[in-house]
Design a protein around this nucleic acid. Sequence first.
DNA 1: CCTCTGATCTTCT
DNA 2: GAAGATCAGAGGG
Length: 206
Amino acid sequence: MHARRNPARKTASPALPRLTRDTYRLDASLLAQRLLGQQLVHLHEGHRVAGIIVETEAYLGVIDKASHAYAGRRTRRTETMYADGGTVYVFLNYGIHNMLNIVAGVEDDPQAVLIRAIEPTAGIDQMYARRPKAKRDTDLCSGPGKLGAAFAIERSHDGIDLVRHDLLFIEQTLAEPLPADRIQVSPRIGIAYAEEWADAPLRYYL
DNA sequence: CCTCTGATCTTCT
DNA sequence: GAAGATCAGAGGG
């Protein structure tokens, strides 16, 4: 029988603090920037899978034509966007990809941040097992669909609370928020249909 | 390097 | 019925 190890003890360093509710309740554009450089962790099937968030996009909610919650659309799919900041919003895109989002802002203000890319730090073998097409480490999580697969994110994760959940959370790896001059900004990807919102500078990356 | 296209399926109109 | 907050592979420069 394989030894039963506590995944949290696999690293030599002490456990990092998690991001707090106050941070998640920031507006999506601020949260999207604050998440850069922090570490997403998923304890899954006895393994610790983790990586540094390096690319995000903000979806501003009811005013944003690119947002699922534009004009207050509240459907079965978008319901979790109306939850409190720090809630996970997962949706299936193109019938294939599970997209990981973090709800931003307060309850009933349906903003969200899409996690678009991550730099793997732990559980690399597990990631390759779930992404057989990947040829090098940089292929593992270099896109929202890829990172969803690599981190074993499924729609069953929709609605969980990152502040309290045992297995899925974000560790605060930066003592201070990144200075603005370290963050790159561009329009969001794949939302050409969003008219005047298509060019809004709401994609952030390192 | 680039552009183009098929895959795949849930959700909402 | 149609449309996606995408990916990977093919083909051409």
